[in-house]
Simulated assay, not measured.
Amino acid sequence: MYITITAQQTGENFAQSSTDFVNYLEKENEGKIIEEQEHFFNQYGEEIFAEEVIREIDGNKAKLKKDEPKFYSITVNPSPRELAHLQNHSENLKAYTRELMKDYAKNFNREIDGRPVNVDDIKYYAKIEHERSYKGSDKAIIENQPFATKILELKNEIRKIEEGKLKGNIKSLKKKIAKLEKEAPHQLGGKRIVRGMQKEGSQAHIHIIVSRKDMSNTYSLSPGSKYRASGTKMHGKDVKRGFNRNDFFKKAEEVFDKQFKYNRNYEESYKARKLFIKNPERYFASIMGLPTNQKSVAFKLLGKSGMKIPLMNIPTNKAQLAYKLLKKLKQTVDRGIQSGSIGI
């Protein structure tokens, strides 16, 4: 489960309206009939249209300055293993979102009218998406890039020959291009994977737009606060502040596991990812200390992340294991680990 929280920006400035972001989230509905479309929802409502989301989010930013975020985007990305466990992606993820947002509210160290913040104070709208496209930062695109560069060079050469600016054998160049297309290491449906190509398999994930201000448009609730739990004086009054991002991410896993009776392996836990960042050697030692069946699953999951790990003849010496795998693991899963932490 990878979760990110970001303040929405346009260039160097915070977005003053949610229009562009909401319209972006409508992209999967293009060309589909109403019955096939995914609409926005919130804690109690369904079938909410984009116009209402924009109106409600944009109208809920009283007294916020231009240099302050007006709303945040929370993206919840279940892993392929988690998605495979679900029976109905749309309905299951909607139910999960509603439970998740209860914990989102609980992790604010704030009070509203003398009581803790609860989910009814949070103005949010969420949407399930089922598709993802390859981006420049994806491993498949990066490793296919040398082939893409050479293919582009050959195509430019062909164009110059056709324009009479260069002499050469176009037929021979086209054969070289065809050979490079097949040799590219990452293929999908017999074609070289390129940017914008839709990813295979289930890609269901959740986008949540949450207002910076509470439901009454009075209190500021910022998940971007650098404070976990502290107090300050505002207008002469003692005010609590802060948001516990670590606890929110931890609870996100616990809610999913309880709600769907999911048996989470140690390797895919927040605890493990956090340990990997702080102390890779202890991380490897922890995996080696798992019961045999759980350890086997852990290494299979690591293999799916991009590591070539033999499941047989794994070094038993913990220091030896850390030494052999650390560099390669960092190269292949650092990006996933970083997106797995809740970053502002």
Rank of each mutant, 00 (worst) to 15 (best):
T4G: 03
Q16T: 03
F21C: 00
V22R: 04
Y24D: 06
L25E: 08
K27Y: 14
K27E: 14
E30Y: 10
E35S: 10
E36P: 06
E36L: 03
Q37T: 09
Q43T: 02
E46H: 03
E51N: 11
A62T: 08
T75G: 04
V76R: 01
Q87R: 07
H89E: 11
E91G: 09
N92H: 05
E99K: 05
M101V: 04
N109A: 11
E111N: 07
V117K: 03
H130S: 14
Y134W: 08
S137A: 11
D138V: 01
E143C: 01
T149N: 13
K160F: 13
G164F: 15
K176C: 07
E181M: 14
K182R: 13
P185R: 10
K199H: 02
S202Y: 00
S202P: 00
I209Q: 06
N217T: 00
T218P: 04
K226N: 06
K226I: 14
A229R: 04
S230T: 15
G231Y: 05
R241M: 11
N244L: 08
E254H: 02
R264H: 12
Y266W: 05
F276R: 13
I277E: 08
P280T: 14
E281V: 12
I287Q: 04
N293K: 14
V297N: 04
L302I: 08
G303T: 05
I314F: 09
I314D: 00
N317H: 09
K327Y: 07
G336F: 04
I337T: 10
S339E: 06
S341M: 13
